[in-house]
Design a protein around this nucleic acid. Sequence first.
DNA 1: CAAGCGTATCGTAGATCGACGATATACAAT
DNA 2: ATTGTATATCGTCGATCTACGATACGCTTG
Lengths: 111, 111
Amino acid sequence: MVRAKAQTQKCCTTNEKLSLPDVAWAEDLAKLTWALAHPARVRIVRLLLSRTSCMCGEIVEEMPLAQSTVSQHLKILKQTGLVQGEVDGPRVCYCINKAAMAKLKKLIASL
Amino acid sequence: MVRAKAQTQKCCTTNEKLSLPDVAWAEDLAKLTWALAHPARVRIVRLLLSRTSCMCGEIVEEMPLAQSTVSQHLKILKQTGLVQGEVDGPRVCYCINKAAMAKLKKLIASL
DNA sequence: CAAGCGTATCGTAGATCGACGATATACAAT
DNA sequence: ATTGTATATCGTCGATCTACGATACGCTTG
């Protein structure tokens, strides 16, 4: 997602430009917003928020997508930290990571 | 971005599932978050927020990207409505669309 | 009109996304 | 041990993203 390939063009030629914290901040926010940048993932997050927790199978039933596709979206949500999943016997129980959600909200609100 | 291809799997088999407003809501939010789903676009938005307005050339100078690439990112931001650009003689002056930003913040806050 | 500047668009190439079916894995129950 | 259920991963395919240079467009100035 982030290439960060070294460019020929100079950057930071003056103090006002591109302070490194800003770059990191931007990457942070971009990562979180990217997690929500697909309707299916937004819907999964909403579903989890409405239930405090949810079996994977229930999510699949709610979505007009194949099980493998839902699993992929869940993987992305886990990678970004917005969602946590814990194994419960043969099933997996997913829930929102409230800290990550709070971080997203904070970053957006401070825009 | 959204394919919405008809699936073989049934949806909305019960009342609780996938109410259409929710789907539209999810697509709305996904579209807005997708606009911010790249660090370069986050930085452009931050830059514009810090200045009330900005010439395109200034943006290009701040970013370690080619002019054409920045122009593409600006096009995406314009498409989603987060940013507006108006021609000012030979230049283009970009600014944040406050209404769209407010909508994004509201949607995220109401998650 | 010509030249120059600022911006947008085109064309292209490589990487990633998003979807699926098929298959592997992990656990529970028989 | 075998079977069945729930979930994750693999492999693949087409579409889209992201980057660039080259070029086209629009406006201003000489």
